[in-house]
């Protein structure tokens, strides 16, 4: 669904067809969830955050000025919400944060295209190690790699979502990838 069709759905929602918002939820729920999961490393909390992000987006929908893509706007809400969530949770810690603290592990389903013989052999174990090493990166690098290399946002969109300069985005991506590559090499994946 292109951004144009996002706007059509938004028009319907603003005209009173609230149920049409389910199209938006269906489209973006996994992307928001993945980002939230990378920040909290806990399935249930990530699910709660995802739901809250959509509630906030719905509430603020009238203020969406259509200057940027809807996805960029939604991801801005997501990033800010996660930031505040982390702050709040750090103030009142109750759940383990890092993998060494026993963050939850849920199975990563392997999509069919990953099992094609001509593809690199990326097993569940490989993905688990990649996930561990990615989530073990410093926050700045982790969030930017999730947005760029998993969610596929452009450099410009990342700059808008995170509210940082484009050159800063580039630098963080380089450093994040370099560090991750080094760690994956140490784990024998590269």
């Amino acid at each position: 669904m292109s951004d144009k069709s996002d706007l059509e759905v938004i028009d319907r929602v603003l005209a009173g067809d609230i149920e049409a918002f389910s199209t938006i939820i269906e489209k973006y729920r996994d992307r928001v969830f993945r980002y939230a999961y990378s920040r909290v490393y806990n399935y249930d909390e990530a699910l709660d955050i995802t739901q809250e992000v959509f509630l906030m987006a719905m509430e603020a929908l009238r203020s969406f000025r259509r200057e940027a893509k809807f996805s960029t706007w939604l991801f801005s809400i997501m990033v800010n919400y996660c930031k505040n969530f982390r702050k709040k949770r750090d103030r009142f810690p109750s759940v383990a944060l890092s993998r060494s603290d026993g963050g939850d592990e849920f199975e990563i389903p392997i999509p069919d295209e990953r099992q094609r013989p001509e593809d690199d052999v990326i097993t569940v174990d490989t993905l688990r190690i990649v996930k561990e090493e990615l989530y073990g990166l410093p926050e700045d690098y982790k969030e930017i790699l999730v947005l760029r290399d998993i969610e596929g946002l452009s450099y410009g969109d990342i700059a808008r979502v995170l509210g940082i300069h484009l050159s800063n985005v580039k630098v963080r991506i380089h450093r994040g990838r370099e560090l991750l590559k080094k760690r994956l090499a140490e784990r024998g994946l590269l």
Partner: peptide, 25 residues
Amino acid sequence: RMLRMLSGLRALCIRSGDDFTRATL
């Protein structure tokens, strides 16, 4: 190769049994 492995993490998604969309709506 690292980027391909990272893109493999797109498989992380909400469990289908959670009925997330309906609950959120």
